[in-house]
Design a protein around this nucleic acid. Structure first.
Length: 571
RNA sequence: GCGGCUGUAGCUCAGCGGAUUAGAGCAUCGGUCUACGGAACCGAGGGUCGGGGGUUCGAAUCCCUCCAGCCGCACCA
């Protein structure tokens, strides 16, 4: 089906094109009419005429028959009011469309790099945003029809692994595995670190072990594998708890790119991009300078001949373009790494590894702050484990549920509490501009009133309860939408705008465009629900309202699912 | 010093491909009140959109400048 916005836009573009090819009608939702087109003013300027005259000229070419009525307002705005007949058709099409009007895109391959925890280290709030935002983007792209290749670029390589492996040996493999499998990664890492700092013999063993690891010593590799596997299993638990779609096979860590690094260096050299500076092998992409105004290097190979992270990032770009055939690569990584990625992309383009046809973007995000507006930490100054955060939110959700009468049994309540907790945490993260820092306030995000995940879930649950009362499954059959009540019409306009919200979230890579839409829709629904009785309404109004409820429930559930949030039937 | 991000109601935030009276949530105050789930709805007060300049018929939105905060700026990712 053609969405309402696209239907309007198509007609407008034709009329604008007739006067000036390529002119943008600037179509927006409006509080005056249903939509407004502001493009007349810009067009008038281009044609050097009075906007009202231009508006008249546009109207002569504009055929909105069967869609909307137009009115020229103010200096030259086109206020558009959809006809009821058109809304009727659109709503009917939505009822029959599982995708609720969202078009399927071309078959693109999109690589999304997100989450990226470190082996043998806890997942903490620092990983929350990458994980939650990345997963929402993965879901949105999959829904569009892309083949999404998730890449979990875990930190599984580097000098700390010498000490971690030695510590593992000291503990004994079984003991170590036991400790790691219960999720005490931080304790394991900390103990290794303490020994490394305090015990010279241990430090020496650790160094030797790094060398053995890098030279591919089989036993060392096996021990390293144990660490990685245990950690990946633990990450999988956290992802399950968060309901994140990342799987163990998506873990493609730094070590994966190791065998490619020499080629990266060789090929950069062959391309004439490599420069030796201070003993290190570097590329100096144009336009980057350091503190002193000198060219800033991207260090590919360090003075000690080890490879820097830039090398593996370059290898990853190559792999994603060359082997995965990515049309689009997204890096969901914190904003502080912006310059690093700009440089990596610039070098990759210069080396010819990243064609202009491939969109490559750093999806940056701000920090999670505590109530003091500093980095979110526990009172004692430690990082907050994701699993603990979720447990605390779940506990609060349980407590809130316990105060309400419910027909749910204990197991159902437990599940529900986790669904609410996840919704609270994820929605809070996904409902603001991702570039900004945000203040983590569990009380606010888990509240059932206001712009929160639980509020949206509640709106959905109320809708489902209407259908539960109906008993037998409801088949809309033929519905006539007359939208006699203003609240019905307002809700209908919201329903018809779902494809725009999804498109906006995708094109801007900003899930909060969708969150904001869903909250607005939920508010339209509750206002409607307040003033328009559904079950007790006479036919055919009853059927019409049930159909509006059906569409609203489906839109909320689908929209939330694209954000990675459950929409339970009861709360 | 250079670069990036941020500065919108008491608080937390939308809006920033310019456009008709600057929005929401929370909090506050006032209503609805035997309700198809009140975990709701309706309404009110509350803003020099960090300051200043510029472009424009029109700027929270674009440009310049200043102020404040956060972050990055060579071998840790």
């Amino acid at each position: 089906m053609t969405s309402t916005y696209d239907a309007l836009l198509g007609r407008l573009v034709r009329a604008f094109d007739a006067l000036l090819p390529g002119a943008d009608p600037a179509l927006r939702p409006s509080e005056r009419g249903d939509y407004q087109a502001n493009g007349v003013m810009a067009l008038a300027k281009a044609r050097g005429e009075n906007p009202r005259a231009t508006a008249a000229a546009v109207l002569e070419n504009l055929d909105l028959s069967g869609i909307a009525q137009v009115e020229v307002a103010g200096p030259g705005f086109l206020n558009l009011t959809l006809t009821t007949a058109f809304l009727h058709d659109q709503l009917g099409a939505l009822l029959a469309d599982e995708r609720l009007g969202v078009p399927r895109g071309g078959a693109r391959t999109t690589v999304i790099d997100y989450s990226a925890p470190n082996v043998a280290k806890e997942m903490h709030v620092g990983h929350l945003r990458s994980t939650v935002i990345g997963d929402a983007l993965a879901r949105l792209h999959r829904f569009r029809g892309d083949t999404v290749v998730a890449r979990n670029h875990v930190g599984d390589w580097g000098t700390p692994f010498g000490m971690l492996i030695e510590h593992l040996l000291d503990l004994g493999e079984e003991e170590a595995v036991a400790s790691l499998s219960i999720g005490d990664l931080d304790g394991f890492y900390r103990d290794a670190r303490v020994k490394f700092d305090a015990d010279d013999a241990f430090k020496e063993r650790s160094r030797a072990r790094v060398v053995a690891l890098q030279s591919g010593d089989p036993e060392t590799r096996r021990l390293w594998r144990v660490l990685v596997d245990e950690s990946v299993a633990y990450f999988a638990e956290v992802y399950r708890a968060l309901d994140v779609t990342l799987r163990p096979v998506d873990v493609v860590g730094e070590s994966y790119y190791n065998p490619m690094l020499e080629d990266v260096v060789r090929d950069l050299d062959a391309a004439g991009l490599l420069v030796e500076s201070g003993g290190a092998l570097c590329v100096f992409p144009a336009g980057f300078t350091n503190r002193e105004g000198e060219p800033l290097p991207l260090i590919v190979q360090k003075r000690d001949e080890g490879f820097g992270y830039a090398a593996s990032d370059l290898a990853a770009v190559r792999d994603r373009v060359g082997n995965l055939h990515a049309d689009e690569i997204l890096y969901v990584v914190g904003a502080p790494q912006g310059q690093h990625f700009e440089m990596v992309f610039a070098v990759a383009r210069a080396a010819g590894w990243l064609p202009d046809t491939v969109r490559c973007e750093h999806v940056a995000f701000g920090n999670v702050l505590g109530p003091d507006r500093k980095m979110f930490k526990t009172r004692s100054g430690e990082t907050v484990k994701l699993i603990d955060l979720l447990a605390e939110a779940t506990q609060r959700a349980s407590a809130a549920l316990a105060t309400r009468a419910s027909t749910l049994d204990d197991d159902e309540r437990r599940v529900l509490a986790t669904q609410i907790a996840r919704a609270a945490i994820k929605y809070a993260d996904l409902s603001t501009d991702r570039q900004r820092d945000y203040v983590f306030d569990l009380d606010r995000m888990i509240a059932f009133e206001g712009d929160t995940g639980p509020y949206l879930q509640y709106a959905h649950a109320r809708l489902r309860s209407i259908f539960r009362r109906l008993g037998a499954s409801w088949d809309p059959g033929t519905v006539t939408f007359v939208l006699a009540d203003a609240a019905e019409r307002h809700l209908a306009l919201g329903l018809v705008a779902f494809p725009e919200a999804v498109a906006a979230a995708l094109s801007s890579l900003q899930p909060h465009r969708l969150s904001g839409y869903l909250f607005d829709l939920a508010q339209r629904f509750t206002a409607f629900y307040e003033s328009c009785p559904v079950l007790t309404a006479p036919e055919p109004t009853r059927t019409e309202r049930l159909a509006l409820c059906e569409l609203t429930a489906r839109t909320l559930a689908l929209g939330l699912s694209l954000l990675g949030i459950d929409a339970p039937d009861q709360m």
